[in-house]
């Protein structure tokens, strides 16, 4: 079993781990020849299935295992991974490999970073030497050959993240949730705006139900109601005994369904719940009730800057598809799927 790769896009990788770790501390990471997939299934709250094209975060990717498609399954703690990637933010290069230390499997992140040249007078000549190197010259292209030149100013940081290697059997039974065809699908407005308003609503509702707040926690927190129609509107509301607030976005896009993706093609499309909801006009909504705090954690995915489509299965579930910008055109799509189930009224 071998896995080794360079990290192409440390920023994206770091933002991804930040977003995922807000929902759960441990991820199931499945690596194979084609994709990198992170799955988080917390005990309560939202599930995430994040499937990324290898190119979107890695390069020089090698993987080898006895399983079909060279699959490796790992259980990976996200906070240490995120912390380790923080070390790499300004690095000149970073690579990851799966290895063992003291008999324990680890993901070892090797980061080559420049140390600050803080005018250490004793080393003026070194700074001068470093200055003579043209960072845009050959060194970028022929990194391998010019390794020793700048060694004095480099720090090699190794961050070892503990992992568990999962057997194929142990993950066999875990499947992506199946949800019925959604009643409405809509492209969400700016997530930072949506998050600010959602957080605000939740906070207001919580502070007007203080008596319950001290009590049993979760159950007492009022739920956010999120609803979408097929005429470009999204409605966010919350109500308690003391208040009732609502925000409505209009002019949003309801993307067209691809007949190829719908069962029974064109015919299926005609019978599709969303077609029916559209026919019922702008006052017909598909609605879910969600926990405001959980929703806030979900929305932290906004940092990745993806395009987000929300699919509402009325009174049942909300599914968010977050499409990340591709590193290269024509590459496989990277998409994060969030499964949020609706609370009953």
């Amino acid at each position: 079993m071998r896995f080794k790769t360079s990290v192409r896009n440390i920023q994206t990788f770091s933002k991804l781990t930040a977003s995922l770790s807000s929902l759960g501390k441990v991820a199931w990471l499945r690596l194979d020849d084609d994709t990198v997939r992170f799955t988080i299934i917390p005990e309560t709250g939202t599930q995430v299935w994040a499937s990324l094209s290898i190119d979107s975060i890695f390069e020089d990717y090698t993987i080898q295992s006895a399983a079909p498609n060279n699959t490796i399954n790992l259980e990976l703690p996200l906070p240490p991974l995120h912390r380790a990637l923080k070390s790499a933010i300004n690095a000149s290069s970073a690579s990851i490999r799966l290895t063992k230390k003291d008999g324990m499997p680890i993901l070892s992140l090797t980061i080559i970073t420049n140390t600050v040249s803080s005018g250490n007078s004793a080393h003026g000549f070194l700074n001068a030497a470093a200055g003579n190197q043209d960072p845009f010259g050959e060194n970028g292209a022929f990194r391998e050959e010019s390794l020793d030149a700048g060694r004095e100013r480099e720090a090699v940081v190794t961050q070892d993240i503990p992992v568990r290697v999962l057997t194929a059997d142990s993950v066999e039974g875990i499947h992506e949730p199946r949800v019925r065809e959604p009643d409405a699908h809509i492209i969400l407005p700016s997530l930072i705006q949506l998050k600010a308003i959602s957080d605000r609503f939740t906070k207001l509702a919580m502070s007007t139900t203080t008596a319950a707040k001290a009590g049993s926690g979760n159950s007492s927190v009022p739920k956010l109601e999120l609803a979408g129609n097929m005429h470009g509107s999204l409605k966010l509301s919350i109500s308690t005994d003391a208040l009732n607030i609502e925000s409505v976005w209009t002019g949003l896009t309801n993307p067209e369904l691809d007949p190829g993706q719908v069962a029974d093609g064109e015919e299926g499309l005609e019978d599709h719940p969303s077609t029916k909801l559209r026919a019922r006009g702008p006052d017909a909504w598909a609605k879910v009730r969600i926990d405001g705090r959980d929703w806030g954690r979900v929305l932290s995915v906004g940092r990745l800057g993806g395009r987000v489509i929300a699919c509402f299965a009325d009174e049942h579930a909300l599914i968010l598809y977050v499409y990340l910008a591709n590193y290269e055109d024509g590459a496989d799509e990277s998409v994060l799927t969030y499964y949020i189930s609706s609370f009953s009224a």
């Binding site: 300004n90 000149s92 290069s93 080559i112 420049n114 470093a130 960072p135 390794l147 060694r151 190794t158």
Partner: peptide
């Protein structure tokens, strides 16, 4: 681990 590193580039300090 001591892979020999590439030449220094201006780094933004965190």
């Amino acid at each position: 681990s001591r892979p020999s590193p590439p030449p220094p580039q201006p780094s933004i300090q965190s």
